[in-house]
Amino acid sequence: MKLFFILLLSINSFKTLAVEVVIHNLNSLSSSDQKTVSTWVNQSIEKTQNTLGPLKQSTLPIYLKPQYFAFEPVPWATVKRNNPDGLELHIDRYASLKAFTKDWTLYHELSHLYLPLFPYSGFWLSEGFASYMQNVIMRDSGIITQPQFVQRLNAGFDRARLQTKTKTQPLNKLSADMWKQRAQQRVYWTGAAFFAQADLALQKQGQTLASVIKAYQLCCRPARSNAKMFIKELDKQSRSSVFSTLYAQYNNRTDFPNITKAQINQL
């Protein structure tokens, strides 16, 4: 079963959001929980699009997997690549709207939709972008403060630094094997550092990562791509060599980059 929600229901709240959200399995929840989940999903998309611009796709399917016993609002989620792309959300059916809103998972998964599907060797880019952008979206929308934004990124970078001591393969090689090696911390957060450093460089040129991704999403994001074509297109959209310069430093690197709290605070 499914239920349709149009994000143009409220002129004041959703006037720029034209994507239609199709929530599957919503009727497995009570009436009050249906309202909570649909409000959370719609508001999360609004927050994401406020930062990254409108999604290119006109319809977004959400596949709910409600759980009776969960230790967090969204214990697991994933992107379902299809036509159109969608999200599968495993949720605590009894979580409050406040708890859902403060959970980072949906912002992370929505961020994935702004990038194409890469080969496994390029997953450090997709997971890094989503890990970085979930925090930008939450900061931009007031869910977390700037000090919390800095703390969260720095904590992620610290976890990556620690795991880099034992997971020493080149980043692209480790990216293709991260599940078997349980190397998600290094892969995700080294990728996040790549996008943080790109954002810092772009800001010196009067741009932001979000503005470049917004342009890329609207003009030329394919369903699938490889890392080099993606990087080339971002350079084109930003009229710079920011992304190719950093990509050359990151793709085969075996260490963690030097990025400080002071630098993070400039973002």
Rank of each mutant, 00 (worst) to 15 (best):
7 L>S: 14
7 L>Q: 12
9 L>V: 06
9 L>T: 10
10 S>K: 10
10 S>F: 12
12 N>V: 10
13 S>M: 13
13 S>Q: 14
13 S>F: 13
16 T>I: 06
16 T>Y: 14
17 L>N: 15
21 V>N: 03
22 V>G: 05
23 I>N: 01
23 I>L: 02
26 L>A: 12
27 N>L: 13
27 N>Q: 15
27 N>T: 15
29 L>E: 05
29 L>Q: 06
30 S>M: 11
30 S>P: 11
33 D>K: 15
34 Q>K: 14
34 Q>H: 09
35 K>F: 13
36 T>D: 05
36 T>Y: 02
36 T>G: 04
37 V>F: 07
40 W>S: 01
44 S>K: 08
46 E>T: 11
48 T>Y: 04
50 N>I: 07
51 T>K: 04
52 L>Q: 07
53 G>T: 10
56 K>H: 11
57 Q>I: 11
58 S>Y: 09
59 T>E: 13
59 T>M: 10
63 Y>E: 08
64 L>R: 03
65 K>C: 02
71 F>Q: 10
72 E>A: 09
72 E>C: 09
73 P>Y: 02
74 V>E: 01
75 P>V: 01
75 P>S: 00
76 W>N: 12
78 T>N: 09
80 K>F: 02
85 D>E: 06
85 D>N: 13
89 L>N: 01
89 L>F: 00
93 R>S: 10
93 R>P: 00
94 Y>G: 00
95 A>I: 04
96 S>G: 04
97 L>R: 02
99 A>E: 14
99 A>P: 00
104 W>A: 11
106 L>Q: 00
107 Y>K: 08
108 H>E: 06
109 E>Q: 11
112 H>T: 06
112 H>L: 07
114 Y>Q: 05
114 Y>M: 07
115 L>R: 08
117 L>M: 10
118 F>A: 05
120 Y>N: 13
120 Y>V: 08
121 S>R: 14
122 G>D: 07
124 W>A: 03
124 W>R: 04
130 A>S: 15
130 A>F: 04
131 S>Y: 02
131 S>D: 08
131 S>F: 01
132 Y>A: 04
133 M>V: 12
133 M>C: 07
134 Q>H: 13
137 I>L: 10
137 I>V: 15
138 M>R: 15
